[in-house]
């Protein structure tokens, strides 16, 4: 059990690995939204992202025996998610999307729905920030999404990417700098 009284993900997955596959439902309820957010941030395609969420849980069921209970479940799951996304990206590489078309797709209702906090100037800034994030190169966007949206610990991101924790922290810093550059460029574009 962890601090909040929940059975930890690692313990649940260990039971799935030992044959109690129905327990996968617990992990699905805990993680499918965050996984979806990861995928949609990476590929901007709702249908594909929903398919990939299914794919991740299917792969975890299928390869459950390969789960090592001493390692972070989250890192393992996102490693699988990352592979699934890369497989898809390879498949779609043929249909390279032009910048204009790219922008059109951003305008889909999913991303346009304004939350209560998105009002007036503040709202515009957030929308601009969202666009800036979408324009970042995949690796920079990925590390920000994982650390900021999906609340992965830096150790977990390091395990997932196969690098040192210190490297992850520096890469987060660099990604933030890149984000700032794109953000200001977009702001200039807009006011021009």
């Amino acid at each position: 059990m962890n601090a909040t009284g929940q059975v930890t993900d690692n313990a649940v997955m260990a039971r799935v690995a030992s044959g109690e596959v129905a327990k996968m439902a617990v992990l699905f309820e805990r993680h499918h939204r965050a996984l979806y957010r990861y995928f949609i941030s990476m590929n901007r395609n709702r249908e594909l992202s929903e398919d990939l969420v299914q794919d991740v849980f299917f792969r975890m069921l299928r390869y459950r025996a390969s789960y090592d209970a001493n390692q972070s479940f989250t890192a393992w799951m996102y490693q699988i998610a990352r592979n699934a996304n890369v497989d898809q990206a390879q498949k779609r590489k043929a249909e390279v999307v032009g910048i204009d078309e790219f922008d059109d797709r951003r305008a889909e209702p999913a991303s346009a729905a304004p939350g209560p906090e998105e009002i007036a100037a503040k709202g515009q800034n957030i929308a601009l920030l969202k666009r800036a994030l979408e324009r970042l190169p995949d690796d920079k966007r990925e590390i920000l999404v994982l650390s900021r949206f999906n609340d992965l610990k830096y150790e977990e991101i390091a395990a997932m990417l196969g690098c040192e924790t210190g490297t992850v922290k520096v890469r987060v810093f660099r990604a933030m700098r890149a984000l700032e550059r794109v953000y200001f460029a977009l702001q200039k574009e807009k006011s021009a």
Binding site: H32, R33, Y36, R37, I40, R46, S49, E50, V53, A110, S111, A113, P114, G115, E117, E118, K122, N125, I126, L129, K130, L133, L144, R148, F149
Partner: peptide, 10 residues
């Protein structure tokens, strides 16, 4: 501000 970007839901 990154935290204020609304989460997209499946």
């Amino acid at each position: 501000n990154l935290e204020l970007i609304p989460a997209e839901e499946p």
